[in-house]
Simulated assay, not measured.
Amino acid sequence: MDAESNTWFVIINPTSGNGSSKKHWPKIKSLLETHLFDFEFAFTTHSKHSTTLVHQAIKNGITNIICIGGDGTLHNILNGIMTQNDFLSSEIKVGIIPIGTGNDWIKTHHIPLDFEAAIQIIKNGVLATQDIGKLVIKNSSKPAVFFNNLAGVGFDGLVVSKVGKHKHIGALAYLYGTLVSLFSFRNFDSKVGLNSEVISGKTLMILIGICKYSGGGMQLTDKPDPFDGLLDVTIAQDFRKFEIIKNLVKLFNGTITENKKVVSLKTKSVTVQFNQENAPYIQADGELIGTGNMEVSLIEKAFSFYTKPPN
């Protein structure tokens, strides 16, 4: 590993925002040059390429990374940071120039969509360090997955599985995925263990939040705080199709957590077991992870990023 460098490494996902990243890269590159950034850059060529690029940059001593893409690109950059062994994860500093479908994570931290404003935030150098979730699928050879926004299993996992082909319509893709998923989803049997308590029964979805928004602006957890050292868990129990339709607006305005069939709890870790053969989909930061019994734990103050200065 080389000594720590002052160079920035810029990762561009050319497919983010229905190709907007690639289209706008010349303008963004010019702005970075205007603001006197010393940087190298690379375009991703496959889904988890960002993770590999992060590993390579860090091996070369680069600890400042700029993400040009959406929630999925940032998710893969985070996983690159959390799976390298050369620096503490919090020593790797990430700037975000958001171009994506949902752009959910930036909503919590008020990072603007305007390119120049986002670059100015990075240049100002104000850092925040938030908590990160670690998700392990038990009895699986898959490595742990780290997430910075929200993980979920059940109905929202099915929605994510439907969104992929329709990201070109932006945040509406999540509404489309929700409506399509209504026709095929079945409540599942689950056993959720947290805080020495077990909650069992028919379940619509289980959400484990760190930040506030997911699914193109939905608010599915009660009081998530990326800095409080706790996961915010929502268990939506045994919703019928008509109840989901009736509560669609509440999924977006955050009042779904007030429903009598919704349990909200704070915890450091949570286990989820499925009492059926066909386990539901698991998603993290809008990326499909797989299926199976799982365990999620919190890593406090693990992810450093450039943000707006406090008012």
Rank of each mutant, 00 (worst) to 15 (best):
101 T>H: 07
85 N>P: 12
57 A>I: 12
68 I>K: 07
90 S>E: 13
52 T>S: 15
85 N>A: 07
91 E>L: 14
61 G>K: 05
98 P>Y: 11
56 Q>F: 04
93 K>W: 00
94 V>C: 12
77 I>C: 12
77 I>W: 00
62 I>V: 13
100 G>W: 00
95 G>R: 09
105 W>S: 02
64 N>R: 15
74 L>A: 12
86 D>K: 14
94 V>A: 04
52 T>I: 11
86 D>A: 15
74 L>V: 08
54 V>D: 10
72 G>R: 09
68 I>R: 10
77 I>K: 10
62 I>M: 11
102 G>H: 09
74 L>F: 15
105 W>K: 02
70 G>A: 12
55 H>N: 14
76 N>P: 09
59 K>H: 15
86 D>R: 15
72 G>K: 02
69 G>K: 06
52 T>F: 04
67 C>A: 14
64 N>T: 11
61 G>E: 07
105 W>P: 00
78 L>H: 06
73 T>S: 15
71 D>R: 01
65 I>P: 02
63 T>D: 10
66 I>C: 11
67 C>R: 03
77 I>L: 10
103 N>R: 07
83 T>V: 03
104 D>E: 08
72 G>D: 02
55 H>T: 12
78 L>E: 00
63 T>M: 13
63 T>S: 14
71 D>W: 02
67 C>D: 05
62 I>G: 03
75 H>Y: 06
83 T>L: 13
66 I>M: 09
95 G>A: 12
92 I>V: 15
